[in-house]
């Protein structure tokens, strides 16, 4: 479960050592934009040591490596892989071939290190027009691709349009990515909300992303994490309804009934699936019923 993913600059010890306390379901150690070219080596080693020595508990550890058109990405991967990051975030993924190049190198490294193949997952960052157009083929490029992530800042530059708080300019990209990811059976994460002081804006933006079908949202500010977690968690009434649905199903089975209705509405397969999803998330958050 990744409701929230938080970017931390890869060469800032003060942020890295407290990463597990900031409430995010996953931390993204950034070796790319947050690190200047002269410090790429220092950040790589610092992030490797953070992975090696710090206990992140239940918090997932993701590393954003440099893109494959830079001289850094292979060194990034070979340095950090022995300490088993959960996932690699690949920036500027424009085509399936980009993801496949990284997949091939990861497979090679996993073999060298005696790790099971596909141990480390891959999440392409879609932030170019080409990437959006190729979203489905990227999502299905390799077995280790488990999620897509929309990056709206670079994308709007590529689109030659202005990035606005209303985000109408990325509506197509958002829906296109959700469609591609769901068709491929992978998760999909929404772009960060940029104004770190707008407490109302982040809530609306996250809620909209959830309504579109995103699995969670990435943040560049620890201040946004709690709101994102809240928005992407099931509400108590959603949980209650999900239990009602499953109870009604169980009862109907016992009574040998075929068609079931609840609150005057027919319960069909999609409603049941959704109820199951809600409850598995509630259980993961410790909000579920004691007995299963």
């Amino acid at each position: 479960m990744r409701r929230s993913m938080l970017f931390l600059p890869g060469n800032n010890p003060n942020m890295l050592i407290n990463g597990n306390c900031l409430g995010a379901d996953a931390i993204i150690f950034d070796l790319e934009d947050a690190v200047s070219p002269a410090e790429k080596d220092a950040a790589r080693i610092l992030v490797r040591n953070t992975l090696r020595y710090m206990d992140f508990g239940g918090c997932e550890r993701i590393v954003r490596i440099n893109s494959i058109d830079t001289p850094y990405w292979k060194k990034d991967l070979s340095t950090i892989l022995p300490w088993k990051p959960d996932m690699i975030l690949l920036p500027k993924t424009g085509a399936a071939a980009d993801a496949q190049a990284v997949d091939a190198y990861l497979t090679e490294l996993e073999q060298q290190l005696g790790m099971e193949p596909n141990t480390v997952a891959l999440m392409p960052l879609i932030e170019t027009a080409m990437g959006v157009e190729n979203a489905f083929s990227i999502a299905t490029a390799a077995k280790r691709v488990r999620a897509l992530f929309l990056g709206a800042e670079d994308l709007t530059t590529d689109l030659q349009c202005k990035r606005t708080k209303e985000s109408k300019e990325i509506f197509y990209a958002r829906t296109r990515l959700v469609m591609a990811a769901r068709a491929a059976g992978v998760e999909v994460y929404d772009t960060p909300f940029i104004d770190i002081n707008d407490d109302i804006g982040i809530r609306e933006d996250a809620a909209f992303a959830k309504d579109l079908g995103f699995s969670g949202k990435v943040s560049i500010s620890p201040r946004h994490v709690e709101v994102i977690n809240e928005v992407f968690s099931p509400t108590q009434s959603e949980i209650d309804y999900a239990y009602e649905v499953l109870d009604a199903i169980a009862l109907a089975k016992k009574q040998g009934k075929g068609a079931i209705s609840l609150r005057g509405k027919m319960i069909d397969a999609p409603i049941v699936t959704r109820a199951q999803q809600t409850i598995s998330m509630a259980m993961a958050l410790g909000l579920g019923r004691e007995e299963a």
Binding site: M15, N18, C21, L22, G23, P222, R223, E226
Partner: peptide, 9 residues
């Protein structure tokens, strides 16, 4: 400071 904000929350 993010840690300060977490403590405050």
């Amino acid at each position: 400071d993010p840690v300060g904000l977490v403590m405050a929350a």
